[in-house]
Design a protein around this nucleic acid. Structure first.
Length: 300
DNA sequence: CACCATGTTCCTTG
DNA sequence: CCAAGGAACATGGT
């Protein structure tokens, strides 16, 4: 599932529903889903605990588990296809169910088709993350510093979780489009004004996506995988709005919503990158002039 | 069959 | 030695 906004929406969703609930029986259907424990030690760590908090850090879900005065941390990373959701205790497990935590009449399910995700009892992975882009620590000064000593393309650099925690392949392209920065630009060639724009578009894009995810009904649970909404499951209605919200990602050959030019796809840092070759030209940000659309007429 | 996919880590290259 | 690029990981959809 996965970038910061999707994990944030999920964390909020789960926080409301898990607060104070006691963990009961734990079933590990795939031991490889446990990154740093065996099924035995994992179950022992969860025994006799209650959920206290559910939070997000970068793309990680963080569950604080309480036993009397002590707390433990359970961390989940969803990889590319991971899901965490609540289901009825009696619901059948799917072929991709990896771990199930019983909660009485319900259960918390971790499901993951590609198995890049997993559960960890060791919080040290979080120490390597950079600042949260939506929090005050993500300053222009920090971003400038983080980009100053690298000739790597800015697009690839945004995927570096030590620069800012939680940006992934979709929102990196989206933020660069809004900031009108060519994704190939070497990080150390961005001037102060570009860095300021980038910081603000990163924040805008992520905050908007969280608002979007919080504003439409989502199922969160396992369901047919052949919809474009891999993030949360299925929207109950309004698929159109979902598809509208991305400006460049996965829109190769479609018109730029700003100038009409065809969106291009290229590979940077081994990942697909989408951008508008006109709006994201060097110097294209001058005065916000909109170039004359040259693509086919576009409209409804 | 070929290519693509929301991510991270390890290995190789220059 | 280091940064950057690429492969690997595993599974599925188109």
């Amino acid at each position: 599932m996965p970038e910061l906004p999707e994990v944030e929406v999920l964390a909020r969703h789960l926080a409301l529903r898990l607060a104070a609930k006691p963990l009961r029986n734990v079933r590990v259907l795939d031991r490889r889903a446990l990154w740093d424990s065996t099924p035995r030690t994992f179950k022992a760590a969860l025994r006799n605990r209650r959920f206290q908090q559910v939070q997000r850090r970068g793309k990680y879900l963080c569950f604080t588990l309480k036993r009397r005065r002590q707390t433990a941390l359970l961390i989940a990373h969803l990889g590319m296809t991971g899901r965490v959701f609540l289901a009825d205790a009696s619901a059948p497990t799917s072929r991709h169910t990896r771990v199930v935590i019983g909660l009485g009449t319900e259960k918390l399910v971790f499901e993951d088709v590609r198995r890049f995700g997993g559960l960890s009892l060791d919080s040290s992975v979080l120490d390597r993350l950079g600042p949260e882009p939506l929090e005050p620590g993500f300053t222009v000064g920090w971003l400038g510093l983080a980009l100053a000593n690298s000739r790597q393309s800015i697009k690839a650099k945004l995927l570096d979780q030590s620069v800012a925690a939680g940006i992934g392949n979709i929102y990196a392209s989206e933020a660069l489009f809004l900031a009108r920065i060519d994704p190939r630009t070497p990080s150390n060639q961005l001037d102060r004004s570009a860095i300021k724009r980038l910081r603000s578009t990163i924040r805008r894009v992520l905050a908007q996506a969280i608002r979007f995810g919080s504003s439409i009904p989502l199922s969160f649970s396992s369901n047919t995988s052949s919809n474009k909404l891999f993030y949360y499951g299925q929207p109950r209605g309004d698929l159109a709005r979902y598809e509208e919200r991305l400006r460049v990602y996965d829109r190769e050959g479609e018109h730029c919503r700003r100038c009409g030019t065809d969106i291009q796809r290229m590979v940077l840092g081994g990942r697909s990158t989408f951008f508008c070759p006109v709006c994201q030209r060097p110097h294209s940000s001058d005065h916000g002039k909109v170039p004359v659309p040259i693509g086919p007429a576009h409209g409804p």
